[in-house]
Design a protein around this nucleic acid. Structure first.
Lengths: 216, 216
DNA sequence: CTATAATCTGAACAATGTCAAGATCACTGC
DNA sequence: GCAGTGATCTTGACATTGTTCAGATTATAG
């Protein structure tokens, strides 16, 4: 990106780009943001990176592979945002609430990134094979961890391991469903501002938070 | 479909197909089921329908329009499946539970249909314009209706209209999130059989059902 | 029966994902 | 210092796709 803009007058456009890999990922992110994931083309990406259409194939096996890499990055971003949201807060239940809001808010503010993370091409393209790019979701392990904090603090009467597993799935599904409905679903027309989304998330998750139990 | 199979020997392949519209939708559904929504091509569809690549454009404005029509059909199917699941059951809380299971099960058994229903191209392609094809989700109005039943039967202490709205969003988000996580998400590898999915849904929603309230 | 509208074809266009053969460059081992 | 090996990039090509347009064919209304 910087290379072609700065040196195109001085020398004869270096044959090797230097750090195409990173440039591609960066450009791809903004491109997906603009045109959506479906209007995203490898050739346009190469064009923006100032490189031939075949160049990206030396850094990513596929278009799908590039998208997988993007999704991996977004997963990490979401994890960081979640960490940041609960930083400094002590009360486990408040941490849980903040975490949920952070999740939904991330989806609301970065819709294309959120969509990419749950795309079909990421999951076992051959139906059985595991994709090595996809690690256990950082946001999910964080959620589990906080739920354990809650139990230890006595905020939640969960004893069995099974009940804790169910509670975490419950929370995740709730928050993820909310995010999906807001981003791509029927709630997208009703809730448009950041404040509305935060308020809705608080109230919807709040109901389930206070009595989230009596597990199996 | 029936036309080309039956008459291709008797006469000279009628110039007009007869009922292309329906044939296209039907073939499109099976095609999406096979190749996924991304590997779905208009030309391949035309090929299967035994018709020229340009023919579908007389029945659907766009590829996106065709997909919208598909999504509309699927919405109706989901509505029917939901109706069928609660038919004959009296207890409102049980109806609520059955409804949730039906939703998740539909997603599990018809993943491609479920995915299509919540696709970006369905929602305001120009950012503002409303798509007339998309009606209020039948499954959602059914959910609201049953929640009202629950309140009238005294199973749920919800008074304000706002609280009822929140409760319905809560239930929908929970069930929809669960479906998404099972179909495209990290739970897809853990829960594979129909029985597992049903059991999980029962338990996850069950926890939220018994104490789903304490409104605003 | 005729005119008009609906439906379908054929050919074309621009764009895309992907690949193979070759050009260019960085860098290791001598 | 230098040959050569492997990484990186380009050029050119191929098959496919979405979409459009002019014309052929048929249904249908008047």
């Amino acid at each position: 990106m910087s290379r072609s803009l700065l040196e195109n007058t001085s020398k004869h456009e270096p044959y090797h780009h230097g750090n195409l890999h990173a440039t591609l990922l960066e450009a791809a992110r903004t491109l997906v943001e603009e045109h959506g994931i479906d209007g995203f083309s490898l050739r346009e990406l190469a064009r923006r990176a100032g490189v031939s259409p075949a160049a990206p194939y030396h850094h990513f096996k596929d278009k799908a592979a590039l998208i997988r890499a993007l999704a991996g990055e977004s997963q990490i971003r979401l994890g960081i945002a979640s960490q940041h949201a609960i930083k400094g807060i002590q009360d486990p239940m408040q941490r849980l609430s903040k975490l949920g809001v952070a999740y939904v808010l991330f989806a609301f503010e970065h819709p294309s990134e959120f969509r990419i993370m749950f795309r079909q091409e990421l999951r076992s393209p051959l139906g059985e094979l595991e994709q090595p790019d996809i690690k256990p979701d950082p946001a999910f392990v964080l959620l589990k961890q906080i739920l354990i904090e809650c139990r230890q603090a006595g905020c939640i009467p969960i004893t069995s391991e099974r009940a804790l597993e169910l509670a975490s799935i419950n929370m995740w599904a709730l928050v993820h469903g909310l995010a999906t409905l807001i981003v791509d679903g029927p709630l997208s027309h009703t809730f448009r501002t950041k404040e509305q989304v935060i308020e809705l998330t608080r109230q919807v998750t709040g109901g389930s938070l206070q009595q989230q139990l009596g597990g199996t």
